[in-house]
Simulated assay, not measured.
Amino acid sequence: MGDLVGAAFGFPAVLFTFALAVVVGYWALVIVGGLGVDALDSDGGAEASDGGLPGALSAIGLGGVPASVTLSVLIAVAWFGSFTGSAVLPQDNVLSDIGVFAAALVVAWFAAKLLVRPLRRFFPDEVVASRSDFLGQVCVIRTGRVDAQFGQAEVTAEDGSSALVQVRQTGEYELSAGTTALIYDYDADGEFFFVMPFNAAHPRS
Rank of each mutant, 00 (worst) to 15 (best):
A56P: 00
D41W: 09
G52T: 09
G61R: 04
V37N: 02
A59V: 09
Y26V: 00
S49M: 14
G64D: 03
L29Y: 13
S42G: 13
D43T: 14
P54F: 03
G61F: 02
V65K: 01
S42I: 14
G34M: 00
D38R: 08
I60M: 06
G55Y: 05
A39Q: 12
V37P: 02
G64T: 03
L57E: 01
D41Y: 05
G51D: 08
G33Q: 13
G61Q: 02
L29M: 12
D41I: 07
G55A: 01
L53I: 06
D38Q: 09
G44P: 08
A46R: 07
G63L: 03
S49T: 13
V65T: 02
W27F: 09
A28D: 09
G52L: 09
I60K: 03
G52Y: 04
V32A: 08
G61H: 01
G63C: 07
G51C: 09
G34Q: 13
L29K: 06
A59F: 07
I31H: 15
A46L: 15
A59L: 13
G52S: 10
Y26M: 05
G33Y: 11
I60C: 06
G44N: 09
W27V: 04
V30R: 00
L29F: 13
G51M: 12
W27T: 03
A48M: 14
D50Q: 12
